[in-house]
Design a protein around this nucleic acid. Structure first.
Lengths: 245, 245
DNA sequence: GTCTGTGAACTGATTCACAGCG
DNA sequence: CGCTGTGAATCAGTTCACAGAC
């Protein structure tokens, strides 16, 4: 009786529990998987099938999805098209997001023209820089480069909701604050430093050198045990010769 | 008596325990912190001081370091210069790494010329592409672009130990295998797809769209409670109008 | 006294295993 | 049957709290 109503509601209702960061990260991954499946003409899938594609446990996928509602059909699995739309909606991608890139250097311009963004509902509508040589120009794909001073005006005019920071470390915190002042609540930071944000705003950092260092660590562990390394690794923390700087 | 010898040895010996991935990631962060401290002329620091700089617990820093040895002095703290060198060594950065970038598009070229790498001991010595228009040219900073066909030869000749993949998704798995075949055991992948590797090789992926989606998720949660959003978010997984097919 | 190094307690995420629905 | 959704069990990572070195 009442149960029917209740179930119907729960189907789309998010739980109030706190949702782990890892879960939300995986949601994007599931979405990619579903997109691939849809392209291949697959209409239905199951947590097992999806789990095999990446290196995941099927229970984890079910649990991740269960945080947000009941999207599957017992005994059947998930309808690719439906689940895809649900995930898209959960991630807030339905409407699309306008993005700006601050820093019109090599990396900034590459990100401005990055082809992967439009596919996933992100449109870079503006780049900013403070160098007179760059202001007034535009990226290869035609995105205009504005004066950083006008950030706040353009952000409001264009309805920009996300910012990407691609300026040198020294300038990053200042740019971060300008973005926050302009009302941008979500920032992706490529400057190799920790930015201090504000409550109600999210800052994600991608530090390219740290990523490489993780790989470097792997290499030095890898070869320190037995197998013959290509080059001298470091067999085990030697008191290294003092070749500083 | 024997204890003295024992302590001396343990001081530099890594434990055999499995070291959490998160620990190694943080090692890089500590290293950055130490570099900053050294630049400021600070000679000694403590886990508390460092913990304040980022948002970490001091015990975590001590525990992370303890996986690799005993680098501190009780009652005193850590000697910046020494700890920095130790971390550098643990991460395998002492000797430096030669890196190649595959894919000479916007992103590939931006990564090839990225200024942050040299500072941290990584040198991009070669870029590769398969497009005749790009082969034979070089990046703005003068790194040559070779034919992808010659990958293996150049890798061996230059002693390249790491590869960065910046090609479109379709080509990424192929490039990945070529790198592995050439003996590159550490790969940083920017193509938005999961690459299958091989035992003994490490592949780290950075998916720019997934990062933005995480921010998008934050924005849509953020505004779904109360505070007035700038734009229509999605208040709570609505039974989206069934515009199917 | 200070601050490290570390076992013990805790917190949170993953996996198991199974009840329940189609 | 098969496959989801989920409590219970497990596992991993973090924090606490204190003994021990200086």
């Amino acid at each position: 009786m009442l149960d029917v109503r209740l179930a119907r509601i729960r189907r789309f209702r998010m739980r109030t529990e706190r949702i782990p960061e890892f879960t939300t990260q995986r949601l994007s991954v599931y979405l990619r998987c579903l997109e691939a499946l849809e392209e291949m003409g697959v209409e239905r899938t199951s947590s097992q099938t999806m789990a095999e594609q990446f290196n995941l446990n099927s229970a984890q996928i079910r649990k991740d999805l269960a945080y947000f509602g009941q999207f599957g059909v017992r005994g059947v699995g998930y309808i690719v098209k439906d689940l895809k739309r649900q995930l898209s909606c959960i991630l807030g991608l339905e409407a699309g997001h306008k993005v700006c890139v601050v820093g019109a250097g090599n990396l900034g311009m590459a990100l401005t023209d990055y082809r992967g963004f439009p596919k996933n509902g992100f449109t870079v509508v503006a780049a900013f820089d403070s160098s007179p040589g760059k202001i007034g120009g535009c990226s290869r794909s035609g995105v205009p480069v504005y004066d950083l001073k006008d950030l706040s005006v353009i952000v409001r005019k264009e309805g920009i909701s996300m910012g990407i920071i691609a300026v040198p470390s020294e300038a990053a915190q200042d740019v971060c604050e300008r973005l926050l002042d302009a009302g941008v609540r979500a920032i992706l930071n490529f400057a190799p430093m920790r930015l201090v944000g504000r409550p109600g705003a999210e800052i994600k950092s991608i530090d390219l050198s740290i990523s490489l260092e993780g790989l470097s660590y792997f290499l030095s562990r890898q070869f320190s045990d037995a197998s013959r390394p290509q080059q001298q690794p470091n067999p085990d923390l030697p008191s290294s010769p003092d070749t500083r700087r």
